[in-house]
Design a protein around this nucleic acid. Structure first.
Length: 700
DNA sequence: AAAACTCCTCTTTTT
DNA sequence: GAGGAGTTTT
């Protein structure tokens, strides 16, 4: 593809972003403004026109899915596969780099990556040992995570306690946790970033090497970076300053995971000479949807001002409907989907139902089933997080990294082999005393006296099992998995369903090397394996980021649901507002907002009030439909909105008859007054745009 | 080692 | 009100 065609199809701002090559660049890209496109095209431009080597452009995303899509786009632009390219998630790229360099920090290159599950297991273990309240493990994990994502080391945290004892306890756990990780030769997710930063800080010569290697840096979803990631970018970018970041402060919805929007605001200051380019044209939604979304988000203080606009004038009005309870809400949505589907304009895959919390999916599922509509749910437990899968990977990890205590504890008696709590406690004690790994202690226990011969025998069996696997050179992960299932007794231990999952695992890993497989398994998430098909999509607002659908429903527009009741301070409310904004801007043609006056939350019924966000919506863009009795509905509908003027006489999907072209299906209806136009799909001749005044359409 | 019982939590969750 | 995890019982 030539340079000309790389620029073709880009608007002036997108072009500018692509051609701005010297120095730091911040691209503020509104929802639906083509930010991925800019990155992909810029990558292709650097390679094709500027002759950058393929692996010299570090391209970072947040999700595997985004990385995958990026690779596909780039390879179709450049006509080459992206095997040698440095494109991937922050975590995957750091992990790759650390496998090569981590020895400089005293870890072994075969370190294990602990996912959140493993992290929690370890923290619980430590809490129990300290006799701290074990049930707090989630909060502790979150706190440690946030310290790590701010690059605060355990020792530093200890030095500034709060004086009440809580922080001291936390510090104690943090220190121990970090110590334990090191001894297991393991890194958690935050370490992948943090340790890479430390590596660069302590070893400038290594940093220099990567300055030379990565002569350009491209970053997607920049608003989601945490402090550690920001620091990493600063270090890597400090050599040449060729860094382009793309993001949207209005779509920052992961604050609770350590993401810091301020990174967007700090960029111009911290990267001297930085240029800012705004992408404000939205290629996705109709004007009505955009007006509603902009009105809501504009109420957020401290955001970069933007003028979001679209070429798709008018469009169907945004619908808002208030119902009696969550079942009616769900039924209403199901009925609406069915109706739109039957009109023939939309397929099931065109619909998305978005909600704040996963439990809200239940009512919708039921309603969709009742109407016989196919659906799938995004999120939930990931394949690699299933118990039996994690058990098998624990065997693999232990064989590769025998100091991995977390994995050992997981499988030592699974399947049951008569090594119970008492034996394990003995080993744990011994290990602590001698500062050895559990596996090492097991080996010496077998040689020494002190345990009964029966126990010895069982321990020996386990050790042999692991050592045999460790010494064997498996060609693929699937060979190893099969071996584990056979030799460990898993085969008899698990039931049919789970064997099925294991078979899937074997099939999917037939072409993957063992170590590669383990990395993938750790860094994989539930976002990656959604098998959708052409069915209605149900998911949380969070999971919807980056996606688009012709028809979107957002449910639970009530105080306590959206915004969620846990959001109390202003920052948190603002994040809820952004979440709502992200949801609305997923919609291309039709957007429905619903709420209910009664809802069952955690086993009790609650009276719900309309969400405060609804009052920010300009009345002229929204049609308020009342399907609930009682005072809620009347209070809800804003004054003046009761005059139900059908702004667009033709809904997308309705059938019309044209004197010349016969019967067609309306796709869109837009514009004002005399300019009002309607887009109709006539089976015989295709899509036609007609001025409503002259079209002589007959509604069927 | 399975079964029964008790306790606890219940937001979102890119990796 | 359900589901998960840990603990106690058999």
């Amino acid at each position: 593809m030539s340079k000309e065609s790389l620029l073709e199809g880009l608007n002036p701002e997108q072009r500018e972003a692509l051609l701005y090559l010297e120095g730091p660049l911040l691209v503020l890209a509104c929802a639906g403004s083509g930010k991925t496109k800019v990155i992909a095209h810029k990558f292709a431009h650097l390679v094709k026109t500027k002759k950058f080597p393929y692996n010299s452009i570090l391209t970072l995303t947040f999700t595997n899915k985004a990385a995958h899509e990026m690779k596909e786009r780039i390879s179709s632009l450049t006509g080459k596969d992206t095997n040698g390219a440095s494109i991937g998630t922050f975590h995957a790229q750091c992990s790759r780099l650390l496998r090569k360099e981590i020895q400089s920090l005293g870890y072994k290159p075969d370190f294990t990556v602990y996912d959140d599950d493993d992290q929690c297991t370890l923290i619980r273990h430590i809490l129990r040992e300290f006799r701290f309240h074990e049930a707090l493990y989630k909060g502790v994990a979150a706190k440690i995570g946030s310290l790590k994502s701010s690059l605060i080391l355990p020792e530093e945290f200890l030095s500034k306690g709060d004086g009440f004892g809580f922080d001291e306890k936390l510090a104690k756990v943090y220190i121990r946790y970090q110590d334990e990780l090191k001894r297991c030769n393991a890194l958690d997710f935050d370490d992948l970033i943090g340790v890479t930063v430390r590596l660069f800080e302590r070893h400038p010569e290594i940093l220099k090497k990567y300055h030379a290697l990565f002569s350009y840096i491209l970053v997607d979803e920049f608003q989601d970076t945490n402090y550690a990631q920001y620091k990493l970018l600063k270090l890597l970018g400090s050599g040449h300053n060729n860094i382009s970041v793309v993001g949207d402060d209005d779509q920052s919805i992961y604050r609770f995971r350590g993401a810091d929007v301020n990174n967007v605001y700090k960029f111009e200051r911290d990267f001297p000479g930085a240029k800012t380019i705004r992408l404000e044209q939205n290629y996705r939604s109709t004007q009505n949807i955009l007006s509603v979304a902009s009105a809501v988000i504009s109420k957020n203080p401290a955001r970069k001002p933007k003028r979001l606009w679209t070429g798709r004038q008018g469009g169907e009005s945004v619908y808002h409907c208030w119902l009696n309870n969550e079942d009616e809400e769900a039924r209403h949505i199901a009925k609406t989907i069915k109706e739109l589907y039957l009109r023939g304009v939309y397929e099931f895959g065109d619909f998305a139902v978005l909600y704040r919390v996963n439990i809200q999916s239940r009512a919708v599922e039921e309603a969709l089933r009742d109407e016989g509509l196919p659906y799938h749910i995004v999120g939930g437990i990931s394949f690699y997080h299933r118990k039996e899968i994690k058990d098998i990977t624990a065997y693999m990890r232990l064989a590769i990294n025998q100091t991995d205590n977390v994995s050992l504890r997981r499988i030592i008696n699974c399947p049951p082999r008569g090594i119970g709590a008492a034996t394990l406690a003995k080993i744990e004690n011994e290990a602590k005393k001698k500062a050895l790994s559990l596996f090492e202690v097991m080996k010496s226990t077998v040689k020494a006296n002190g345990v009964t011969s029966a126990v010895k025998e069982r321990l020996e069996g386990f050790i042999k099992l692991i050592e045999r696997m460790a010494s064997k050179k498996y060609k693929t992960a699937s060979d190893m998995i099969q071996d584990i299932i056979e030799k460990s007794g898993f085969e008899e231990f698990v039931n049919n369903d789970r064997i099925q999952h294991l078979n899937e695992l074997i099939a999917s890993s037939a072409e993957t090397e063992v170590k590669e497989f383990l990395d993938k398994a750790s860094l994989f998430t539930n976002m990656d394996d959604s098998v959708r098909g052409n069915t209605v999509t149900l998911m949380t607002l969070h999971s919807a980021k980056g996606l688009e659908f012709p028809v979107v429903f957002i449910l639970g527009l009530e105080e306590g649901v959206l915004p969620y009741f846990k959001a109390t301070n202003e920052d948190e409310i603002n994040e809820e507002r952004r979440l709502f904004y992200v949801g609305m801007t997923r919609a291309k043609d039709i957007l429905w907002l619903t709420g209910a006056s009664k809802r069952k939350l955690y086993a009790k019924f609650q009276n719900q009030e309309a969400s405060r966000f609804l009052s920010d919506i300009p009345k002229k863009c929204c049609e308020w439909i009342e399907k609930s009795r009682g005072d809620h509905a009347t209070r809800l509908a804003p004054p003046g909105s009761d005059s139900k003027k059908p702004l667009f006489p033709y809904m997308a999907g309705c059938r019309v008859k044209h004197p010349k072209w016969g019967i067609g299906v309306v796709r869109d209806c837009y514009g004002d007054g005399d300019e009002q136009k309607v887009m109709v799909n006539f089976p015989s001749i295709g899509i036609k745009k007609l001025v409503l005044r002259f079209a002589n359409l007959q509604k069927l």
